[in-house]
């Protein structure tokens, strides 16, 4: 199976079950560099599982995932971890900031995991915090900032390594619409400016409207809405 031309990340016929619960049942996905793709669908439809599979966090039971010409299934756990460190970025709804680290340290963390020296990593982190308009929070801990601010810090952290794919799982789920939209604007602007692809899992249409394209997951099967027309 060859991925569509120009595709950065492609999944074919993904299947994944947690015990008797089928989460993915032949899902398809592909994304181009710089593209923002929304993954929508009702609760429990398998959106998050698709994201976890695409990001190499959870191995699918069957099917293929190709990233930049490489098959994810053929990689060891350590290789996939390294991929996540250097090529991918993550924004989740809850709990992604390490509560004991300050905001700037949180943002610097992925760089440091890749081996960047502390000073350099924290300088880069500060630049990103500035871009996301939260540079005044650098020395604070996640427990001391608001939800919207925390989410911006998380976006900064997802982008600091200049990833080629950002995975965002309900990134505005815990925010009000004003904060949520600001976070979405900052996320998509920043991603476009670095030509990063964004996989955006959400159940909110207004959040999905920030994407270039959407796919809908229902009962573990994906549906590309562009092709439906």
């Amino acid at each position: 199976m060859t991925p569509p031309p120009g595709s950065l990340l492609t999944a074919r016929d993904l299947r994944k079950a947690y015990g008797p619960t089928v989460a993915l049942d032949g899902a398809e996905f592909s994304i181009h560099p710089g593209e923002v793709v929304a993954v929508m669908g009702p609760s429990g439809s398998g959106k998050s599982t698709l994201l976890h599979c695409l990001a190499g966090i959870v191995p699918p039971d069957s099917g293929s995932i190709t990233y930049d010409g490489r098959e994810l299934a053929g990689m060891s756990d350590a290789e996939r971890s390294a991929l996540r460190r250097s090529e991918f970025g993550f924004v989740f709804q809850f709990g992604q900031l390490v509560p004991e680290l300050t905001c700037v340290e949180n943002v610097a963390l992925p760089l440091r995991l890749c081996g960047t020296p502390r000073r350099k990593a924290e300088r880069a982190a500060l630049t990103w915090l500035e871009r996301l308009e939260v540079d005044d929070l650098g020395g604070k801990r996640p427990g001391e900032v608001s939800g919207g601010q925390g989410q911006r810090v998380a976006v900064a952290r997802a982008l600091v390594t200049a990833p080629r794919v950002v995975f965002a799982d309900e990134p505005t789920g815990a925010l009000d619409s004003l904060n949520g939209e600001r976070v979405m604007e900052l996320l998509t602007d920043a991603a476009r400016s670095t030509n990063a692809a964004v996989v955006l899992v959400t159940h909110e249409a207004r959040v999905a409207a920030y994407s270039d394209r959407e796919i809908v997951v229902r009962d573990g099967r994906s549906r590309d809405m562009e092709r439906a027309v």
């Binding site: 966090i57 996540r84 993550f90 989740f92 709990g95 995991l113």
Partner: peptide
């Protein structure tokens, strides 16, 4: 949760 997300972005 914090540990899982650390794992997600590739912590050894």
């Amino acid at each position: 949760r914090s540990l899982s997300s650390l794992m997600a972005f590739g912590t050894r």
